[in-house]
């Protein structure tokens, strides 16, 4: 029974297409942005007075992290 399932999975796996670059870059950027967001929330929790500066820095950090995903997105648009 198991080999049949594995064979079917292998067969469908070969049919998987789509942009692996975008999948990996998107996942990595999401992890990065999640960590920045988490730390920013902690920082504001610890020191609510500095929320303005923390917001500015976290926006910059998230933008830089997201840029990587955008590079992959543009490659994906060009079909690579």
């Amino acid at each position: 029974m198991i080999p049949h399932i594995l064979a079917a999975a292998a067969e469908t796996a070969s049919g998987i297409s789509g942009s692996f670059t975008l999948a990996i870059a998107g996942a990595a950027a999401a992890i990065g942005i999640g960590m920045i967001g988490g730390k920013a929330v902690e920082a504001v929790g610890r020191n609510p007075g500095a929320s303005g500066k923390v917001l500015t820095l976290s926006i910059i950090g998230m933008a830089l992290a997201e840029a990587i995903a955008i590079y992959a997105l543009i490659l994906a648009f060009q079909g690579r």
Binding site: A63, E66, A67, I70, Y71, L73, I74, F77
Partner: peptide
Amino acid sequence: MSLSLRLFGNVFAGET
């Protein structure tokens, strides 16, 4: 490059 690609990518992806 990163400034322009980031802005272009986001807006273009939004339109699409």
